[in-house]
């Protein structure tokens, strides 16, 4: 693997006496597609929150593009290209669909897009199939459209690494395929993607590498087929 763009070194997060993450290590290379899986409560979302700045780990360090970002707030990490989407879509409800995309275009980019913010916002909406609904309120969108808007907003921040936190939860099979295809297209543009997901069909199709968290610890990291045959993974994650 070429030099990683993201390195998590011994990330430990505690809530009171409960250790949610225990010395988690992870390295992501440029343009890599990584699936992060684990049972409910394994610490996946906590890990994402630590990576993106919503939480501060008690121990460990996070390096992104050769810079220690452990102490940086979430918005500064987003500006460096460390971008996330949320498990439950969190649109800006009183802003229109296009304004939702304009927010990261105005705030997360170091300089305005060459084509201008309005044009770039429309291009992004076009790429996720929401261009015809640019002026709609988020409340009028379907669940899959909200997921797409979530990804579109992340895309607008010009990510080097996109962390998609359960971007397919609650979607039908065809809708899951739509989101996977969208993520593959983004990855094709050189964006590294960490996919956190319970839908194993999607994880297996998308990921070049799979990382497994169980009870706040990384128990496996490697080729998807090998990881799924890993004894601990089968026992802890698949319940076999």
């Amino acid at each position: 693997m070429s030099r990683p763009i993201l390195e998590a070194r011994g990330v430990t997060k505690q809530f009171g006496g409960f250790t949610a993450l225990d010395g988690v290590e992870l390295a992501i290379g440029p343009g890599e597609r990584v699936g992060l899986i684990g049972p409910n409560g394994s610490g996946k979302s906590t890990f994402v929150n630590c990576l993106t700045g919503a939480l501060t780990p008690e121990k460990g360090a996070i390096h992104f593009l050769n810079e220690d970002v452990t102490a940086l707030p979430a918005w500064q990490r987003a500006r460096r290209g460390l971008v996330r989407s949320f498990q439950i879509p969190r649109p800006f409800k009183k802003l229109s669909v296009i304004e939702n995309v304009q927010v990261p275009l105005r705030f997360a980019l170091s300089e305005p897009p060459p084509t201008g913010i309005d044009r770039r916002a429309m291009d992004i909406l076009d790429s996720i199939g929401l261009d015809a609904k640019a002026n709609w309120a988020p409340k009028d969108l379907s669940q899959v459209e909200l997921r797409k808007l979530e990804l579109g907003r992340a895309l607008a921040a010009n990510p080097r690494l996109l962390i998609a936190d359960e971007a397919m939860a609650g979607l039908s099979d065809s809708e899951v395929d739509e989101i996977v295809a969208l993520l593959e297209r983004l990855n094709g543009e050189g964006i590294a993607v960490i996919l956190i997901e319970h839908i194993m069909r999607a994880v297996m199709r998308f990921s070049q590498r799979i990382v497994v968290l169980v009870a706040g610890r990384k128990i496996a990291d490697g080729d998807p087929a090998e990881v799924m045959r890993h004894e601990d993974v089968e026992r802890a994650y698949l319940g076999q």
Binding site: P73, R90, E99, V103, F107, A108, A157
Partner: peptide, 24 residues
Amino acid sequence: WIGMGLAAIRDDELAAEASGVPGL
């Protein structure tokens, strides 16, 4: 852009920060 940032904060502060809005 200040008003747009404040509106994003009002609607969802965590999502706003994740979009690069300097909340504080």
